[in-house]
Design a protein around this nucleic acid. Sequence first.
DNA 1: GTCTATAAACGGATAGAC
DNA 2: GTCTATCCGTTTATAGAC
Lengths: 222, 222
Amino acid sequence: MKKPKSSEQDGPVEATRERILNVAARLFTERGFAGTSMRQIAGEASVPLSSINYHFGSKQALMESVYGRMLDSVGRRDYLDKLQAEAGERPLTVAEIVRAYMGSALRLTKKDSMSGALFRQLMARAFFEPGDPAESFFPAQFEKDTDRYKEALMRALPHLDEAEVVWRMYWFVGLMAYVLGGKDIMRMKARYGLPDADDPERILERMVPFVVSAMEAPRNPA
Amino acid sequence: MKKPKSSEQDGPVEATRERILNVAARLFTERGFAGTSMRQIAGEASVPLSSINYHFGSKQALMESVYGRMLDSVGRRDYLDKLQAEAGERPLTVAEIVRAYMGSALRLTKKDSMSGALFRQLMARAFFEPGDPAESFFPAQFEKDTDRYKEALMRALPHLDEAEVVWRMYWFVGLMAYVLGGKDIMRMKARYGLPDADDPERILERMVPFVVSAMEAPRNPA
DNA sequence: GTCTATAAACGGATAGAC
DNA sequence: GTCTATCCGTTTATAGAC
């Protein structure tokens, strides 16, 4: 019974600090940073308000810890390297690269106690949250990955110049962010009864041909 | 000199109510609903705090007015009807439909005093803002349009079933929302010096072949 | 480390003079 | 319609007992 449990609900065993992080991650995801109060976090985590400040210092610092833990737990996303190693000299196909990137987003895995779904939504929220939430330390974490994907895509898409490849990556990344964290404000899922709507794994699988075809599109004639 | 000016800055001439709406739209866009206070709005609009409540009743009602004015000024998006009329019996091509939709998003035009850029960002924000900002009255406004686009796309894409067409529309709409209102958190635009990054008209033009190719992709073999 | 109590500022909303 | 002044609950953050 020494090992801490992983759910946010397992109160007595789990460290106070962890419970705060878990609740904060969930509330920041659901309501945004400005829309979440320290008292709500304290209340739902069943800790006194002051313990949040004791452990983290301030609300801003708490959010940075939430994102920090998230980014730590991303772990090494070496899918692409593995693929490249297996392929040898052959350039990777667009489908392989797209699948690798989507897989890395999907398999953003809980380190300790954050559920995968929450984790992905929190990540996606960084793409839309106003202000400068993680904006300062977020990019550095991913610059190398971005570059590697860019290089792989340029080899796979020799008919496109670098700017066009990067634009398409940008749209691809944004589309992923929307799918994982956006709102179905037009209620399309419900109105048309879309299948697989609650299974991100299936959604991303559905998206593969869509995205691959987009990436391979001919250059704009204009 | 009887006609009111259009900029948010033209204080004395413009009606108080309009100035409040303009400032609120900008601040809600920049900082989100929860992240904007009535006092900030009053301050930047140079009106007393109480006048906001006098004119709108509450913060929530103010936001609904902001979105309401935005949706009013959308005007009739009958591009698609016009296209269909010109085409006669011939089904519209995917490229025509995609261009029509993108054009309707781009030409979301200022009614009175809101700039086009702000307008589009505010619209996009509804796709990510936590809580229920416009969620209640937003969809009804667009249900008919969504249906018409869906029908047109189904005729243009006979190899796809309805669910697949709607999924692709959903991704398309989400991609637009991201392009118009998302954050470049990976700093890709700056790091790679993307061209046209500050010209939405050019960006959307660049996106056309990307999106068309995506929409026309073969069905997922799985 | 954990808690109660409180400080100090800010939040939305309103009263009432003009 | 416009403004000042104010109410009153909530906010973040801290002080200080245990």
